[in-house]
C-alpha cells in the first residue's frame, strides 16, 4: 500500500484536519480513507507514462494579457458589514482563541 494510515495522519496535521477526533469509529474510517486515497494516488501514477522531458509546467491556461487595474482607493464596505459574519467579535475586532 502506497498511502499508509500514518502518512494520512501526517498529511492531515499539515492541513489542520483532525481525522482521529472520534476515537475507534474514526480509526476504522481512517483505514478506509487510506485505502481510498491509495487507490487514487496509484491511478495518478499513469502520469509517468507520458514523456514530459523538456516540457515546461503549465500552471494557468491564460494566454492573453491581463491588464492591471489602477491603484486607487475605493470605498466598498464598512467594517461593521465585514465583521458581521465573524463567529466571535468585540466592536470591530475579531475575537480569537489564545495564540501563545
Amino acid at each position: 500500500m502506497r498511502v499508509t494510515k500514518e502518512q494520512i495522519l501526517a498529511t492531515a496535521a499539515l492541513c489542520r484536519l483532525d481525522l482521529a477526533a472520534n476515537g475507534e469509529e474514526a480509526a476504522g474510517s481512517l483505514a478506509g480513507l487510506a485505502a481510498q486515497l491509495d487507490n487514487v494516488i496509484r491511478y495518478m501514477d499513469i502520469l509517468n507514462n507520458m514523456d514530459t522531458d523538456g516540457v515546461q509546467p503549465l500552471y494557468s491556461p491564460l494566454q492573453h494579457p491581463q491588464p492591471p487595474r489602477s491603484d486607487t482607493a475605493e470605498k466598498t464596505r464598512t467594517a461593521a458589514e465585514i465583521i458581521a459574519n465573524a463567529p466571535e467579535r468585540e466592536g470591530n475586532f475579531f475575537v480569537v482563541p489564545p495564540v501563545i
Binding site: T11, A12, C15, L37, M44, L47, L58
Partner: peptide
C-alpha cells in the same frame, strides 16, 4: 479527501512527482 490529496501532492518529497509532473502533462 481532496484537501488531503492536494496537501499530499504539494508536500515535500511528492511535489515533483505529482504536482509538477501534472503541470507538465497539462501543457
Amino acid at each position: 479527501r481532496r484537501i488531503l490529496l492536494g496537501t499530499y501532492a504539494l508536500s515535500s518529497g511528492y511535489y515533483d512527482a505529482y504536482y509538477e509532473k501534472a503541470a507538465k502533462v497539462r501543457r
